[in-house]
Structure formats: C-alpha cells, structure tokens
Amino acid sequence: MMRPEQIWIVIPAYNEGPVIEQVVAKVIGSGFPNVLVIDDGSKDDTASQARLAGARVLSHPINRGAGAAAQTGLSYARRQGWKCVVQIDADGQHHPEDIHRLVEVQAQTEADIVLGSRFLDPSPGIPPTRVLYNRISNVLTNTFCQRSYSDTQTGFRLLSARAIRNLRLRLDGFGYCSEMIVQAEEKGLTIAEAPIQVTYTDYSLNKGQDLVMGITTAVDLLWKLLFYPSKMK
C-alpha cells in the first residue's frame, strides 16, 4: 500500500480564496503532506492562501476551466514521476480523511483509478437537484462506458502512475470527469469505486455546476464523443 508521503493531493481551484487555506490545512492534517494546488487564473488570493497553508502552487495565467486545471496537474505529475495522485475539490465539500479509503481500495483492487463515490453510502443532505444532475450525467456517461459507475461526476479520484502516464484530458470544463472515465476504459485502465462522504455548504453549492453549465458540459462531451471519438483516446 502507498505511504502518505508517496501520494500527492492535487486540488484544482478557481477563486477559492475564502476556503482554500482551510482545505489545504485539513488535507495536511489528515496525514498527507504533499499538496499541489492548480490555481486556474483566480482573480482573488487563492494562490497566496494556498501557499500560506503549505501547498505547492501552479498558476494558470488565465482561467481555462476545471478540466484544463486537472490536466495541468496530471502533466506536472507525469514530469515529476509521481506514483500516485489524489484529486479533490477546492470548495471544501470533500472530507480529506476519505483519501485513506481510496488508497485502501486501490491497494485491494490494484485499480488504476479509484472514484470516490458520493452515492455508494450517501451522505445526508445532498440536495435533490444535485442528485438529479448527477443521475442524468451518470446515464449519459455510462452510455459510452463498458461498465456502469455510481458517481461519474465526482471530483474525488485517485490516479495510479499508469493512469497519470496514459491520460490526456482535452475537455476544459467539467466534462473532463466523464472524459477521464471514457478515456481510461479506452486505454484499458481499470476503475474501482470507494464510498466517500460529502458536506455541502452554501459556499460549495454556489461553486458547483448549475443547470446551464450542466447542459453546456453535456453538449461539449457529446460533441467530442460523436464527432471526434479519436480525440477521446
């Protein structure tokens, strides 16, 4: 099993100044000292707050989207030769202690990707609209997958060295969550799921996808899958 110091926690962040210091501190407090924040062209003090909390920070010169930030994290991880990356959201909805669960499931299954699923052991208080958006996204994503996954839109995922080496995300927006799963299957990477807990606050609810963003994400993903399937590989 991976030791905590062998694992890098990657947090894509955009305008998360009010919470990023706390999120990074919680991750480090959970026993994971290596934290990389990808500041996606934030207009606030996200980068300085993350540095203050002890994270290594890479900053995009302009805002390019969650998928673009995630891929920058992967590209950097590949260059550094990291063996394992766990990606979590920057809005504080995830519980960093769940990283241990993902690591355990990875050790048991030897999967290349472990998805932290909010719906295997559902936390109380997930808003019904979120459940609905996620169900629709699951149906859409699972249509293009060989297997069925309970939470295709989760931002909490563990990636092994093989996944880091092989994945090339091309969608800039939130569609990368589905793209990563479809591409991983195409490349023969194995995927497992582990239950995680989430806590939605007013802050995190304002940061997530709304209906318009969800529709744009779906159109983006469908466009790529239908017209440019080779770009998904």
């Binding site: 890479l58 010169p61 302009i62 390019r64 989207g65 673009a68 920058t72 590209s75």
Partner: peptide
C-alpha cells in the same frame, strides 16, 4: 471556437509548466 479554445489552454499550460520548472 473549439480549436482556438484548445490552443489557448495548451498555451496557458505550457506557460504554467515552464514557470513551475
């Protein structure tokens, strides 16, 4: 538009990674 967006992202990533290096 999509082509331009991809090129912009690639450029932003290159700058970021060079700076990190």
């Amino acid at each position: 538009l999509k082509k331009n967006q991809m090129a912009t992202t690639e450029l932003a990533r290159k700058i970021t990674l060079q700076q990190a290096e």
